[in-house]
Design a protein around this nucleic acid. Structure first.
Lengths: 247, 247
DNA sequence: ACAAAAGTGTTGCGATTACACCCATGG
DNA sequence: CCATGGGTGTAATCGCAACACTTTTGT
């Protein structure tokens, strides 16, 4: 009925859990599914950004492609964390119909490799600048997603929660200059609990890769905070993992 | 030229890095590749146990199937750790020929999901009891494996090294009753360094899930060691992670 | 002057390290 | 009685947790 696979493999996909931090909340970038059904009653379920893998394409390459299309950014933090291959993950009727329709080929089961990615919201294309109907959603107030995408987010979040304790990857989520308080808030929302701020700064500022700038906040109605920046080289050289949170 | 896929998906496989501990060394279970070439000049390269995924089969199910066939064991420790999907991972000519021959179908690129598994060598079928030409190899003296299997082992080992620091999974590798020294040796070979045995026991024996038995070693030419066993329930109940090695 | 968030030090406790000798057994 | 590896305690140090007040700014 349909022609054989054209440029992509009908069994393999990547999906990206893209995290961003708006200063108060950890958010995930979702897109609204396009397709015939969009106008119907069940219009526009949300899904994770993802795509089938092109023939001859690397998995990570596919993830980067999806990311670049969506956010306009290259060289962003990207890490594989799991594979989802349950044979009935795509058997929900509506989901399956959409799959075949949007890919144009008959599809039985899709195994997806899941990546999580950390981006600076301010650097990304805004929600309206791309034509993917993308939007940022609070990670703890997500709508129902297609397939097993809720599960994928959950596992991606668990991975982030774990890895951020040992590696200074939080800076991928923060602007180029930031205050210590911003880092602390980020940790607090990721761990879901408050941290003692004296102890937090003490620990954090031992890290030589967090360097103070000669610049303070402006226009705030309280003592302005000092800005810092992250020196990746200092981390790579020394590999000192001062961040070691046992929450 | 060939008939379409019969019972399995030609793009998806699982591979298992099966670790065992013989009392002195960490070992990996390898099988010798069967096929026409076996008799030829380049006879019998080693590979990881693995297989293509059956249609409608779960990824983890496939890994369990491979494991059960090979070792005769069910319910063994199994954990997904990565996906390898580089499009030229199977392009080595010899490897690729073997792939198509043994599967009977034309194959372009195979994405494999890698699992690592911990088993008690003594409980497994012996090397001769199965007909897969399986053998245990010291993890630091592996031969050249097919495809990217050396890389897969390396990453599996790195994962094990990390996870064993936080979870009491070492018992999966030890016999039902064991001495503290055995655990220590296991950690030493995995971390590749010696540990202070007074401090090691002190830390270890705080864990309530390691319970002393009323039995000692017999027939050793020195003070016999006390045997202990692992109480999984005590761990699951309390989740006390006393194992916390910062090697 | 007031509100609001930034920034700062000390003390007690528990965990980690370093380190050396006696014990039980088989041969 | 000797060789072998099992098993034990203490003291010094380090890192972590708990905790409250002063500073700087805008209004």
């Amino acid at each position: 009925m349909n022609s054989p696979p054209a440029n992509f493999n009908p069994h393999l996909s990547v999906d990206c859990v893209i995290f961003g931090f708006d200063g108060d909340n950890l958010r995930v970038l979702l897109i609204k599914r396009k397709g015939r059904n969009t106008g119907g009653t069940k219009a526009g379920k949300y899904k994770l950004p993802g795509d089938l893998i092109h023939l001859k394409e690397d998995l990570e390459g596919a993830a980067k492609r999806v990311l670049a299309e969506l956010t306009g950014l290259e060289n962003i933090f990207l890490r594989q964390f799991s594979v989802f291959g349950n044979p009935n993950r795509t058997t929900n009727e509506e989901d399956h119909a959409w799959l075949e329709e949007s890919s144009g080929i008959p599809i039985s089961r899709v195994v997806t490799t899941a990546y999580y990615s950390l981006i600076r919201i301010d650097k990304s294309k805004t929600e309206n600048e791309n034509n993917h109907h993308a939007s940022w959603h609070k990670v703890d107030e997500l709508p129902n997603l297609v397939f097993d995408h809720n599960q994928i987010v959950e596992k991606g979040l668990a991975t982030l929660r774990n890895e951020i304790r040992f590696e200074p990857i939080c800076f991928e989520l923060l602007p180029g200059k930031f205050t210590i308080r911003q880092i602390q808030t980020l940790y607090e929302v990721i761990f879901g609990k408050e941290l003692d701020n004296r102890n937090f700064r003490k620990k954090l500022l031992k890290a030589k890769y967090i360097v103070p700038l000669n610049e303070k906040q402006k226009g705030v109605a309280h003592k302005p905070a000092l800005y810092y920046s992250y020196n990746r080289n200092k981390y790579v050289e020394t590999r000192e993992d001062v961040l070691y949170y046992n929450f």
